[in-house]
Design a binder for these strands. Structure first.
Length: 272
DNA sequence: AGGGCTACCTGTACGC
DNA sequence: TGCGTACAGGTAGCCC
């Protein structure tokens, strides 16, 4: 489910519903996620007002009035939904009780996590201390790319590296490289200046568009009780193995290859 | 040191 | 219908 655009949509959803709201109670239904949910988070967060929700890469940061934070990662299948009463489903793990509703975290595969951090600790946590720049930031530019792109790896793996640039995952890397007309197998050191500039441009363009469409629905990207994620209809190559390339003609079929154990989709004809 | 592979966990789709 | 296998948006820790 969640790459940067999906997490951004979740962040907006949480901000619009819970910013300024007080947590009355927290119930841990199952503490076994990627990391065990610490039982004592309850005593730090009870009666606290959520003052803001931030996104950094694919991470969510909940900030409370006493400056404590929760760092949340949705893994592959994590999502939030709002319910009116205690009406739980399989794989619900944590519930925040508010005055007028309940916010539930559900995660089938348990690759996500919810961690508590004291003020000023979260940005120096193991998860965020080495994370790369936001793709929309000024820092992610031509100079940065030249200076920090690992010369030895291919461009797909570079974009997937959260310490190079934050938030890109398996879907959007394929889509970005298709837009930039770059072959995902291409060695980084062989990219010329124009291609680097194009990759940066395509990164911002694809993510921006995906956010405006509400992210990509693959399986269970659900916010509240509404299905969103209309960017799925805009995907050009991801999951399109053996279908005709929408750009260079219907004769050339999209190929699926495996890079570092993950599927990559591209057109051999128009991505060089 | 840095990149590649595998584990983690559950569900689904597909071939036989 | 059932069984075995492959695959799925994530990171992290091991190995080389």
């Amino acid at each position: 489910m969640p790459e940067l655009p999906e997490v951004e949509v979740v962040k907006k959803f949480l901000n619009s519903n819970f910013n300024g709201k007080r947590i009355q109670k927290i119930k841990i239904l199952n503490k076994k996620l990627r990391y065990k949910i610490e039982t004592n988070i309850t005593k730090h967060l009870i009666n606290q007002i959520i003052t803001k929700i931030f996104r950094r890469g694919k991470y969510l940061i909940l900030l409370f009035e006493n400056k404590n934070t929760l760092l949340i990662h949705l893994g592959m299948t994590g999502y939030f939904r709002i319910i009116k009463e205690e009406n739980y489903k399989k794989h619900d793990h944590l519930v925040f009780y508010f005055e007028s509703n309940l916010l539930v975290y559900n995660d089938i595969r348990k690759f996500g996590f919810i961690k508590f951090y004291k003020p000023d600790e979260v940005l120096n946590s193991q998860h965020l201390v080495k994370i790369g720049p936001e793709p929309f930031s000024k820092e992610y530019d031509f100079k940065y790319f030249k200076l920090n792109s690992k010369k030895t790896t291919n461009i797909k793996n570079l974009l997937m590296d959260q310490n190079f640039v934050a938030g890109l995952g398996n879907i959007y890397c394929s889509e970005i490289l298709f837009d930039a007309k770059i072959n995902p197998k291409r060695r980084c050191k062989k990219l010329n200046n124009n291609q680097i500039k194009q990759i940066i441009k395509s990164t911002k363009k694809i993510l921006d568009k995906a956010i405006s469409f509400g992210g990509t629905t693959i399986k269970n990207f659900v916010v509240s009780n509404e299905k969103i994620g209309y960017f799925k209809n805009e995907l050009k190559v991801y999951g399109k193995e053996d279908t005709g390339c929408v750009r260079c003609s219907k004769i050339n079929k999209i190929k699926r290859i495996v890079q570092s154990g993950r599927s990559t989709f591209f057109c051999e004809n128009c991505q060089k």
